Every structure is written in structure tokens, then in C-alpha cells.
Amino acid sequence: MQENFVDYVKVYCKSGKGGAGSAHLHRSRITSKGGPDGGDGGAGGSVILRGNNQMWTLLHLKYRKHIKAKAGENGGQNQSFGAKGDDEIIDVPLGTVAKDAETGEVLFEITENGEERVLRQGGRGGLGNTHFKSSTFQTPRFAQPGEPGEEGWNILELKVLADVGLVGFPNAGKSTLLSVVSAAKPEIADYPFTTLTPKLGIVQYRDYRSFVMADIPGIIEGASEGKGLGHRFLRHIERNSMLLFLIPADCADMRKEYDILLKELERFNPELLDKQRLLAISKSDMLDDELEVEMTEQLKQELPEDLDFLFFSSVSGKNLQGLKDRLWQLMNKDA
């Protein structure tokens, strides 16, 4: 699989230096000792992130380690102001989080299309000598230098924006589900960790409505401590409006598997437990009607009362529409 999904980059950003103010004194054929007429320097360009809803990866920044905006021009005579330096505008996907690489501080998050946020502010231009003239000081022969730009390393992280996030152990059937309910084509195989990068799919619903589902790499016990793919994929779940837990019908202990998944999410971020949850038992085409009824009664005894669950099969199509109906109801519960 071609690795074209990049959700983490570290870049060195430098904004432009402000232009220096001019210390020029007016001179002409008729004036040999004119007053100050130095113009201000132009502001340096800023490094700006702009949200773009047509993008879904930070791949375009993977090999661009240095981002630099233009410096402002110096002021000139006859109160001529220096031109502002060009900003360096970087388009990024929605859900991009900007951090200071040294401190780890979160600076901001881009969530709207066309939203612009300044990552590194350009330096202010220096004032020309006209600003320093007074009744007692007629000919100032000095001006301000421009301010230096800001520079340093920044981290950009992408959190996938989706309505439904699929949560489950490797090989729970998440990729298969996404492939049958949407046009997404994730890689599918009968071994763990097939899904190494999040996949998004548009799920068509009734009356031309739709919602976005994200297949997130399989969680394993210890993921919150960085084992397996660890934090790299758990952060994507933060942006989903609800979570769909997938546990296969041939699982030996469904309650235990559900509790492990829940515990990993809680360790990473307790706020994840505040999201709407639905448990779906995948691969239920392996069950006959009698066994499904028996398992339903058993799950009602074992699972928390407030946890809704249902059986479905991506392979046979069993109850797929019922699953989409229940997801839609939960997503629009408070609407």
C-alpha cells in the first residue's frame, strides 16, 4: 500500500523581518536643509495556516522542512513606506492541530474551511524619522530598525474529522464494514494491523442524506501507553462525534473485550467516554437464529444497561440498514 496518509509533520517556520524605517532628510534644488521625510518600513510576512476541506493529509509538508515568509521592505525618502512582506500561506486539512515543538503547547486547531490562523507572526516595520520630529527636535537623524521575525520548530498533527469512529481490536471487521457501506476501499486481510492509517468513507443514508465514518487502526491493550500504533491513531478518535465499537461474533469474551477497549480510551483521554456509543457484533452470519437469541440474552445480562448493541454482518448484508438507522438516530439524538 502506498503510504500517502501523513498525520504528523515537524517543520521549521520563520516569519519575515520587518523593514527598517528611513532616516532621510528632505533635500531638493531649493531646500538644502529640509526636515525629516523618512517613511516607515513594511511589516514582515507571517506564516499562516489555512483550512482546506479538499485536503485530508499532511503529505505535502512531509519533505518541506523549512517554511519561510518574506521580509518587509525598508522605508524610503519622501515618506515612502516599504512594502509588506508576502505571507506564506500553508493549506492544511480540517482537524490540523498546531503545537510548539519545544514546549508541546497546543497553539490552535483548524476546524473550518478557509479559516486562517497565524503560526509565526511577521516582524513589525520600523518607524521612519518623521515620527520623531517635535517642536524642540526638528531634524531627527535616526529611525527604527524593523523587528525580527519569529522562528522555531512547530508540530502539525492531524485529527481525522468524522461523524462515526470505528473502534475495535485488529481484525474486528472494521475495514470490511467501511468497504460495504461506503465507496472507501481500505485494504482488507485476515491478519491483525491491516489498517495502518485512518480511512474515511461517506455512508449514504436514506433520502440522500449521508455521514462520514472513519476506520481507525486496530486498538490493542496498552495502546494508551504507546504500544502498537499507540497515540498516533488514538488521537483521531477525539474528533468523532460518536464511537461504534466492533466485536466479532466469535469472540471468546465480549464483555472483557469491550472493557479493554473502553479502558484504553479512558487512559488516553477520559473525555472520550462522554461520546455516544454503540456496540455492534460483527460477523453474525456465523450464528444461527437460536444462537443469536441466546447470545442476546447473555449480553443483556453482562453489558451495561445504557449500552445499546446489535448484530450485523458485512459479508451477508444482514442488518446493515438497521445499523445505519441506529447510528443516524444516535448522531441526531440531541438535534
Rank of each mutant, 00 (worst) to 15 (best):
M1C: 08
E3C: 08
N4F: 12
N4I: 12
F5C: 07
V9C: 00
K17A: 12
K17R: 15
G18M: 05
G19Q: 03
A20S: 15
R27W: 14
S28G: 04
S28H: 04
I30Q: 10
S32I: 11
G34C: 06
G34N: 06
G35Y: 14
G35E: 05
G35A: 11
D37G: 01
G38P: 02
G38S: 05
G45C: 03
I48R: 04
N53L: 07
N53H: 11
W56M: 07
T57Y: 00
L61N: 01
Y63T: 11
Y63C: 08
K65T: 15
I67E: 10
K68E: 13
A71H: 15
Q79K: 14
K84I: 15
D91H: 09
V92R: 01
V92C: 06
P93F: 02
V97N: 05
K99H: 13
T103F: 00
G104I: 07
E105T: 15
E105I: 15
E109A: 09
I110R: 00
E115T: 07
V118H: 05
G123Q: 03
G126I: 07
G128A: 07
T139E: 09
Q144N: 15
G146I: 04
G146R: 01
P148V: 05
W153K: 00
L156P: 02
E157H: 00
K159R: 14
D163F: 00
D163Y: 03
L166T: 04
N171E: 04
K185Q: 13
P186Y: 03
P186I: 00
P186H: 00
Y191D: 13
T194K: 04
L196C: 10
K199H: 09
G201R: 01
R206L: 02
F211Y: 13
M213H: 05
A214H: 02
D215I: 10
I219D: 02
G222L: 08
G222S: 10
A223E: 02
G230E: 02
H231V: 13
H231I: 12
R232L: 13
R235Y: 07
F245V: 12
I247Y: 01
D253K: 11
M254C: 10
M254H: 06
E257V: 07
L261M: 12
K263I: 10
K263M: 12
L265M: 15
E266Y: 13
F268M: 09
L272A: 10
L273Q: 08
K275P: 05
R277S: 08
L278D: 03
S282V: 11
E294T: 14
E294H: 09
E294Q: 11
M295A: 01
M295C: 07
E297W: 09
L299C: 05
Q301H: 11
D308R: 08
F309Q: 04
Q321T: 07
D325A: 13
N332M: 07
